[in-house]
Amino acid sequence: MTEDTPLVEITDLGVEFRLREGVVRAVDGVSLHVRKGEVLGIVGESGSGKSISVRSIMQLLPKTAVLSRGSVLFRPPGGGEIDIAKLDRKGRDIRSLRGRHIGMIFQEPMTALSPVHTIGHQVMTPIRLHLGLAKKAARDRARELLQLVQMPRPDQMLDAYPHELSGGMRQRAMIAIALACNPSLLIADEPTTALDVTTEAQILDLLKSLQERLGMAIIFITHNFGVVADIADRIAVMYMGRVVESGPVDDIFESPQHPYTRALMASVPRLGAERRRRLTTIPGMVPDPFELPRGCSFHTRCSEMVEGVCDRLDAPLIDLSGGRNVRCHLHSQNQTGGPNAG
């Protein structure tokens, strides 16, 4: 495996919810990749499909969801290649990946932690399961892990129950469990959204330093542009089940190419920025997922919509230089002359 071969490569992923009321294409043709030791940030509003796309890497989709197409290639460090999309969602193969090679942390640690087991027990479980360590050795490793995530008084915390911990400490415990087997990929689904600002800063700082020390790749899902700017190397912006733009973090923040990215960034007030009388808004509402508009799904709200094109044809995915992608008609027209970004 060379340095450039992605650790995870999602190609043309489709996830559908088949409900009584109709079919919702929660994820519709998403392609993403994460290289070894890289932090990929996925930004989007609720309903954009960011969580669902990433959960399919773990085959942790809700029961009503169907992985309808595409592949999710995962290349574990030992070599080889697994298409996770083809694995049975309850099978042995996916279970040996979860927790062993891929760790996951959630928005609300209280729902992910078992209330009836001690933190120590829960950190030790993946260690004993996947690494086959004896009880004593596993406990030592658990203590090390709690020290690693800078849990105060790790010895005491081994025997504490989740309800005795504050929100920030629970998130640290979750991280310790996710990192128990030295995974090569950590999936973080809005891990700081429920936390206070100062605690959020602590957790982001911790994740960054752990990433530097352990060298794992992180996929970080969030709706907060500040958080993603802080932690990600590359970002992907999602809207209505599609990636509308992706590329290195600095470039996207400096010159967003998709009208949605631009509008979204403008609608967030910035700390310390000059005060404006009004916030820029995106007109209209998020479309009904049962009745997605024809053509580019953003055309109903887009200020740069081209009549007869955007409302008819699917927007193509355009490769821009510097590892950037954008899914927009404006760029296909100007592909030779360069984008006319505003």
Binding site: P152, S166, G168, M169, D196, V197, T198, T199, E200, A201, Q202, L204, D205, N224, F225, G226, V227, V228, A229, D230, A232, V249, D250, F253, M265, V268, R270, L271, G272
Partner: peptide, 27 residues
């Protein structure tokens, strides 16, 4: 001061240059 410093900014370059105040402990 600590609150202002803790807010992640939607500006990757500035974030890197900035030294954030990490508060110890919990509320």
């Amino acid at each position: 001061e600590a609150l202002l410093s803790a807010v992640p900014q939607p500006d990757p370059k500035r974030n890197r240059g900035r030294k954030r105040i990490m508060l110890k402990g919990e509320i």
